[in-house]
Simulated assay, not measured.
Amino acid sequence: MKLDERIADLARPAAEAAGLIVDSVTVSAAGKNTKVLVTVDLPEDAVGSVDLDTVATASRAIGDALDAANVPAGAYLLEVSTPGTDRPLTLRRHFMRARTRLVDLEMVEGSAQTGRIVDVTGDALVLDIDGETKTVALDDVKLGRVQVEMKRLD
């Protein structure tokens, strides 16, 4: 089993205890040490953001789990973070987490769409585009990006 997969397996229960999921694990060299980046997020059915206290709780629990298993062997630097708003939306779960957000979509055939994700049903996005509802198949979307809104309607 690869090191990143082993770390993900160890981190998953610790993250879930804090109400989070493990989104990804990246392992890289950091001088003589190993850097472990664990990206956590809320479950896909949740709307909103992860607060700093929850990330801190997950970080301590993930660190304890890695230490207890001695994985990775030797000194390591653990960083636990959230995906952030600049994460490209490529998977269904990414779009689920972006519900209520304004997104720019790059379509497979080359065009672009901008709309607010109202819902994700089956394999389609339900968007509000200038007050009109439009359904877009996920297979037709190459990539999405959340637009950062300084003043947002709740």
Rank of each mutant, 00 (worst) to 15 (best):
M1K: 10
M1L: 11
L3D: 05
D4I: 04
E5V: 08
E5Q: 10
E5S: 10
R6N: 15
I7P: 08
A8D: 04
A8F: 01
D9K: 09
L10P: 00
L10Y: 08
A11W: 04
A11C: 05
E16T: 08
E16G: 00
E16P: 00
A18D: 02
V22N: 00
D23T: 00
D23M: 02
S24N: 12
A30E: 13
A30I: 07
N33W: 14
K35P: 03
L37K: 10
V38S: 11
T39E: 15
P43H: 14
A46N: 13
G48N: 10
V50C: 05
A56Y: 01
R60G: 02
R60V: 01
G63E: 13
L66H: 03
D67N: 14
A69K: 09
V71Q: 15
G74K: 06
L78K: 06
E79T: 03
V80N: 05
S81C: 07
S81P: 04
T82W: 06
T82R: 03
G84I: 03
D86V: 00
D86L: 00
R87D: 07
P88Y: 07
T90M: 11
T90F: 00
L91N: 13
R92M: 01
R93A: 11
R93Q: 08
H94N: 08
F95Y: 11
R97P: 00
A98R: 02
V103Q: 07
D104G: 09
L105Q: 06
L105N: 04
E106P: 01
M107V: 05
V108L: 12
S111A: 15
G115T: 03
T121Q: 14
A124S: 15
V126H: 12
L127K: 14
D130S: 15
E132A: 15
D139W: 08
D139R: 15
L143C: 09
V146E: 12
Q147Y: 10
Q147W: 02
E149P: 01
M150P: 06
R152G: 12
R152Y: 04
R152V: 07
D154A: 14
